[in-house]
Nucleic acid binder design. Sequence first.
DNA 1: CCATACAAAAGTGTCGACAATATAGCCATA
DNA 2: TATGGCTATATTGTCGACACTTTTGTATGG
Lengths: 223, 223
Amino acid sequence: MTILTEQPVTSSDKTFFKLRQDIVEGSIASGAKLSETELSTKYAVSRAIIREAINRLESCHLVERKANVGARVVSLTAEGLVELYQVREALEGMAARLAAQNMTEEEIAGLNALLSSHFQEVKGGESYYQEAGDVDFHYRIVLGSKNKHLISVLINGLYHLVRMYRVQLGMAGPRVTTAFDEHRHIVRAIANRDAELAEMLMRRHILYSRNNIAAKLNKAGGK
Amino acid sequence: MTILTEQPVTSSDKTFFKLRQDIVEGSIASGAKLSETELSTKYAVSRAIIREAINRLESCHLVERKANVGARVVSLTAEGLVELYQVREALEGMAARLAAQNMTEEEIAGLNALLSSHFQEVKGGESYYQEAGDVDFHYRIVLGSKNKHLISVLINGLYHLVRMYRVQLGMAGPRVTTAFDEHRHIVRAIANRDAELAEMLMRRHILYSRNNIAAKLNKAGGK
DNA sequence: CCATACAAAAGTGTCGACAATATAGCCATA
DNA sequence: TATGGCTATATTGTCGACACTTTTGTATGG
C-alpha cells in the first residue's frame, strides 16, 4: 500500500511513532499539553524517551515547545493550513519538476499502474482507498525527485501535519474524480519529461486542493 | 547585523549552538564521527545534553545518525549542494512571492535601506560584509513571507547547511556586483507587489548562484 | 476587595549509572 | 594464509534521581 518503510529499531523510535500516530489521528487532542511525566507512565517508558520523542515531534511541526514550560500539540487553524499548503506547493512543484527529469521509465510505468488501479476504485467509490491512493501518488513523485532534502522535509516532516489536518477535519471529498484527472495530467507531463509543465500542474493541483479544503473549513467552523 | 535573535536559554541550547557553529565553521570536520562521550567531556556537559544537541543537528540536516551506531557530520558533495539549492530555489521563490504580498511598506523601506548600505560596501570591496549582507537580505525576505513553516524550514534548518558549504568551500566571489543587481530587481518587484515576478527573479538568482558555486567546486576539487 | 509577596507544588532540565548493542581484536581451524 | 567464530572493549540506549524553574495557591497588607 504505502511505500514508506520506516521501521522502529529502538524503543525511542517506537514511542515516537506511537505518539505521532496518536497526535495525527486525534487521540491526543490538538492544542493539548504534553506532560512528560504523564506520558512516560502512559506509554510505559522513561521520561528520557518521551523527551526525545517530543523533540522529534517538534521537528515535524506537530508540537510546539517552550523552554522550562513544556510542549503542546499544535492547534489547527485556517491560516496554518494555508501556510502549510503554500510550502507544499513550492516543494512538491519542485519535486514534480525533478521527477520529470530523474524518474526511471520503470518508476513512471509504476505510476501509471497506480493510476489505473485508482481508476477502478474511483468507479467503485471507495473513498478510503482514494485517500490512501492520493497519499501514495504524492509520495512516489516526491521520492522520484531523488532529492534527499526534499524527501526528508516533506515525508519526514510536513506530510504528517498534512495528514493531521486531513484526518481531523474529515477530508474525503467530492474532489476525488477531479483530483484523479489532475493526477493523470501530471503523470503525462512526467512521462513526456516536460519538467516545466509537471511543476506547473502539480502546483495548480495543490492550490486547488487547498482551496477545496479551506472552503470546507470555513463552512464547518465559521467562527 | 543579523536579524535572527535566537537566544540560548538552557544549557542544552548553548551546547547545540556551539556544536552547530563548530560544525558549520569546520572546527569539527565534515564527515567526522561524533562520539557522545568524547563531546560530553569536550563541552563539559552530560551525555544527555550532547544527545539532545545531536538530535537537533540531525533535524538541521547537519549530521546523520544511525541507531546503535552513532552520528557523523554530513559530508559535503557536489550533488548535495545541487540538491540543497534546488530546495532553496523552491522555498525562497515562494518566500519572495509571499513577501511581495505580505511585507509592510516599512519592511520594504528597510530592504531598500539595506541595499543602499550594501552599495557602499560593494564600492569599498569588503567581501566579508557582502557575505553577511547577502545572508541578511535573504533572511529578511524569508521573514517577510510571514509563513511560519517556510521560516522554520529555511532559517532553523537549511540555512546552516548553506552556510557550511559557503564557509568550507570559501565562497567570496566575483559574483558580488552581479548578485547586488539581482537583489535590486527582486526588491523592486516586491515593492511593486508583483508576486509572480518576485518569485521568478528569486529563483533565477538562486539558480545563478548555484551554478557559480558549482563551477568553483568543480574547479577546486575536480577528482 | 484587590494587589503583592511569599511558599508550596508540579514540571522541566540535568546528571551519573546501568543495560543492550555494535565494533575490534584474537584465537582456532580449514 | 585466510576465514570463521568468540571474547573483550567501546559506544549507544535507557533509566531513576536530583536540581532548578515556573506556576499555583495562600496569606498578608494596602
